[in-house]
Simulated scan of single mutants.
Amino acid sequence: MKPASSRRGKPAATRRNILEVAIREFAKKGLAGARIDEIAAQTASSKRMIYYYFGSKQALYLAALEASYRSIRDIEGSLQLDSMPPDQAMRTLVGFTFDYQSQNQDFVRLVMNENMHHGRYIAQSTSIKTLNIPAIDGIRKIYARGCAQGLFRSGLDPIDLHASISALCFFHVSNQHTFSLIFKRDIMAPEAYAQRRANVIEMILRYMAA
């Protein structure tokens, strides 16, 4: 007989596997285009098992959104920004956001899809709202420390700062193909990527500077 811990771990692993595939499928095809049978075919489970764990395609889509937001916030929370000088902490946060979104493009595509639904499914999630509170609190703490040390100017809104960081990093992924084709510059090429990353960090820090 398998140990109890092994039996308990299998449903969790199965659920994670389903979510990983679902995130890819929903990011690629949207809620309407993704198919449960296609997701099942790419997992170690069945269509029946997916419905057992999640109940419906819409519930699976919402779970995929929640898992995607949880992933970025969990890593963000491990950056130990409180131990860094405020300007370094902000540089680290912006650089992390830029890299994470560029390296996890399904997250960006899921957010784009959800915006096409006018936030209908995120509105049903209490966990996504809760997950994003520490992100704003983190910026608020860095900003307050920077203001106290005379590094940052007063009067800025942490939510607006978060929006500016997200917008600059998000665009690099969401518009990469059209932008690269129109201006004949591969913005994901290593040299262009590094330069844009540095520019985004500098823009935010100069905007905040006292």
Score class of each variant (00 low, 15 high):
D157G: 10
V200N: 04
E25Q: 12
S6P: 03
I122A: 07
Y51A: 05
D82I: 01
S83T: 14
H162I: 01
A12N: 05
G77Q: 11
F26H: 03
K57T: 09
I187V: 15
M1C: 02
A13N: 03
E66N: 08
D157S: 12
G9L: 12
F107Y: 15
A44S: 14
I128Y: 01
H118P: 01
S5W: 14
I72S: 15
E202T: 03
A67M: 01
F183M: 11
A40S: 15
L156M: 11
Y207Q: 11
Q58Y: 05
Q124Y: 00
A12M: 09
Y193S: 04
R8L: 09
I142E: 03
I159R: 12
E114A: 08
Y61I: 01
R120L: 08
Y193Q: 11
F170L: 14
P11T: 02
S6Q: 14
L93W: 07
Y51K: 04
C169E: 07
M116T: 05
K29R: 14
Y53A: 06
N115C: 14
Q58R: 10
S125T: 08
V111W: 09
I133S: 03
G30Q: 03
P86W: 00
L161T: 08
I136M: 06
A27Q: 05
K47R: 15
T130L: 07
F98V: 14
L205C: 06
E25S: 13
S56C: 10
I204L: 08
L79C: 08
R91K: 13
F96A: 11
K10L: 15
R91C: 00
M1V: 08
M116L: 14
T43L: 06
S180T: 13
Y51T: 08
Q105N: 10
D74F: 07
L62R: 07
I128W: 01
A22M: 04
D157W: 02
M1S: 12
A40K: 10
A44I: 06
M208T: 02
I136G: 04
F26K: 03
S6H: 10
L161S: 00
K28P: 00
M1D: 05
A189Y: 04
N132P: 00
A194C: 06
G9V: 00
F96V: 07
L62E: 06
N17R: 07
A167H: 12
A40F: 12
K10P: 02
D87H: 03
K184S: 12
L131S: 02
S78I: 08
S78K: 15
A194I: 06
L79N: 05
V21M: 04
A34Y: 02
C147Q: 14
T97F: 11
M112C: 09
N113D: 11
S102I: 13
T92W: 01
Q149M: 11
E20A: 06
I142A: 01
T43I: 09
Y193E: 07
N113F: 02
S5P: 00
A22H: 02
Y69S: 13
L93P: 02
S83C: 02
K2Y: 14
